[in-house]
Design a protein around this nucleic acid. Structure first.
Lengths: 207, 207
DNA sequence: CAATAAAATAGCGTATAGGAAATATTTCCC
DNA sequence: GGGAAATATTTCCTATACGCTATTTTATTG
């Protein structure tokens, strides 16, 4: 594995490619073999880690038997894989790898009356999250017409300043730099700066 | 852990609900019963939908037997639940509108040799994102055994310090406070601090 | 290529999961 | 509460998963 030194900061953009198909025949055996191989384990070693017999592992991998749930648990525990991952889509090990780097202050601006969003990740197709850095200009809840509500979930971390988070079913709560909150975006929500200057938050929306 | 500075004054409250739902005995049976009940199905009906015998279902629900993987598949298919969901932590459907506030430094610590994670949102039943505040201890890429790869996508924002992001298909890139990056977590990735002190990043994983 | 070692697979006995039917329990009328 | 219907559990038998050991296959080295 090459240990090269990092190059200097610089904005790199790679637009995402869009493949992704579902529907797995779910070949547990094949999957397990892949995982074991990737861990460079022999059946014997895997056997010791999991407490299952070599032969059993072999049979599972070759789909000669259907492991009991307890066996699957032992496998997952022994090989350090979590069970949901076992059943997740095939590993898109290939060149689905993409990244987008955004330098400080170089995001795409998107101002509103109450917020000043800076979109931190430009066109990465079909991404699961949308990250903003947001300057909160609102100084009172009345600056908002009504609750903001939408599908998805949101996480936010206060970067600077002090603000109040208003949410529909709870009391408003004060937050300072370093505090974070996670909530369902279907619940009405709004941010108000409590300091003289605008507050700054990192804001992430998941679909 | 908690190398954090104590946090600032606070007004209204809403302490992060910090209950531990750790390490599940993973009571598949109980879980299945819940699901079946919630679908208003009798054992007989569930039997017809899944192709498994009433008695078998009963035994599974009462944890008298450990279903084979094929049985689990039939269950999942017949009852329209996807398998990962079966093994996820307790329901706690946060769709009903919920929020979790985490005060600075009050997250759940989770140290490794290279990173020091602070989980910012406790018991995320089925959340779409998992937020960490992470202290990067690694000083060289060699501190990692091999690439870290897993399902999902990641966003990260540098909070303090200076670091290098190594990713599988790209050149490593330097990042300073305020910079952020979004990438596919299936692509191998690793963070290395370039400063003398540990670097601090906000790290979010979407499934 | 042999010879040998290492790893994976196959055979077989035992433990246990799965199905059909009997039994027990709960639910719901009257 | 007593019965009857619906639902759940238990029993018993067959099918199959699991572990031990033997065998075959694959990798290594002279």
């Amino acid at each position: 594995m090459s240990t090269e030194q990092p190059d200097m900061p610089e904005l790199k953009i790679e637009s995402g490619s869009g493949q992704q198909t579902n529907v797995q025949p779910l070949q547990l055996g094949k999957r397990l073999r892949e995982i074991r191989k990737s861990l460079n384990l022999t059946l014997e070693e895997a056997s010791q880690k999991t407490g299952l017999a070599r032969s059993t592992l072999s049979k599972i991998e070759n789909e000669q038997i259907s492991p009991t749930f307890t066996a699957v648990q032992k496998l997952a525990h022994g090989l350090q894989i979590d069970i949901p991952q076992l059943f997740a889509k095939p590993r898109t090990t290939m060149a689905s790898g993409r990244r987008v780097l955004t330098k400080s202050g170089q995001g795409t601006p998107h101002p509103t009356s109450t917020y000043e969003h800076e979109l931190l990740s430009t066109d990465l197709a079909r991404k699961k999250m949308v990250p903003f850095k947001t300057r909160v200009r609102a100084r009172s809840f009345d600056d908002f017409g009504d609750w903001v509500r939408h599908e998805g979930e949101e996480f936010l971390l206060v970067l600077e300043g002090e603000l109040a988070l208003y949410t529909e079913f709870y009391e408003p709560v004060a937050m300072v730099a370093g505090d974070s909150v996670y909530y369902d975006a279907n619940m009405g929500h709004a941010l108000v700066s409590l300091s003289e200057t605008d507050a700054l938050v990192l804001w992430i929306v998941a679909r």
